[in-house]
Amino acid sequence: MQLDLAVEDRKPVTFAEVSEPLVEVRDLSVKFVSREAVNRAVNGVSFSLAPSEVLCIIGESGSGKSVTMRALMKLLPPKRTVIEGGMRVGPHDIVKMREADMRAVRGSAISMIFQEPMTALDPVYTIGDQIAETVMRHQKIGRGAAMERALELLKLVRVPSPERRLKAYPHELSGGLRQRAMIAVALSCNPQLLLADEPTTALDATVQIQVLVLLRRLQQELGMAVIFVTHDLGVAAQIADKVAVMYAGRIVEYGAVADVMMKPRHPYTVGMLASTVHGHMRGHDIDAIPGSPPDLRKPIVGCSFAPRCKVVSAVCQTHSPPTKSFGNGQYAACFHAE
């Protein structure tokens, strides 16, 4: 995506962007190199995010959505990964930053929540200890004060009877409470940016909506920016301000959530919306996108979506599609989008 164009154009469009963007990613590409192959997981992704804005990155497995986010945290294995392009979060230049400095940023300015809280929480420490530990690592305060902060945070994420949960171990909590505890750990140092990697995917429907409503509320109360990775369009509709649709390592469509969901421009987004199952399609075949995503270990000529696309033409096979702007802050990388 041509970011220069995107950023310039978007500035007058929404008032949230009068201030300087909190996050700027320019032409990011991530390659995983192994002896057998080079996997181009992310190919030139650019976007920017204003403070206290929620961006949802939507994509299927292998679209590069999680990799993009892990690159922002520098959580990818350094030996096998080649990162190119620019990434800035607040004053921090993520690409140039050394590991030691990065450690200070992780958990304070930028923090992250995951799909499976059991892997993010340490099973041998109580919830209270884990929150206090994070607080003490980043702020020079005593243990007592840190524990008080922990209690405050558990109240913030609406954990019932927080005093008791402070002393609980992760395995003693239910799935939804664990997810809340992890959010509390992530919020402990008032991050400016929260990265959320499918945090509600593993949850039951009745619990998922609780966590989504909570996240939305917290985001507004604390005024932080959120990048939310999901494969579920319904989740995006609930929480996003902006939506970026990723396919084969590229952002194929970007825009305000209402624009993208209600008037999608890219054939892939259109196909995704059409193949999302609804009860009223009963008795009819679903209008599924045929085929499967391309193998990113092989070079892609032309548009990566061309083999599955309904409106494909000759030019799609040979040339990489341009990013088209639609004036309302919506962009799509497609020859035929209109």
Binding site: P160, S174, G175, G176, L177, D204, A205, T206, V207, Q208, I209, Q210, L212, V213, R216, D232, L233, G234, V235, A237, Q238, A240, V257, A258, M261, M262, L273, T276
Partner: peptide
């Protein structure tokens, strides 16, 4: 009813502000 109300709407203007049911399923 709670289960059906927990379905996510695809319309960004139709956002849920209050979850239909609180808590997790008990053990």
């Amino acid at each position: 009813r709670a289960l059906l109300d927990s379905r996510l709407s695809m319309d960004p203007d139709d956002r849920m502000t209050e979850p239909p049911i609180s808590g997790d399923p008990p053990n």
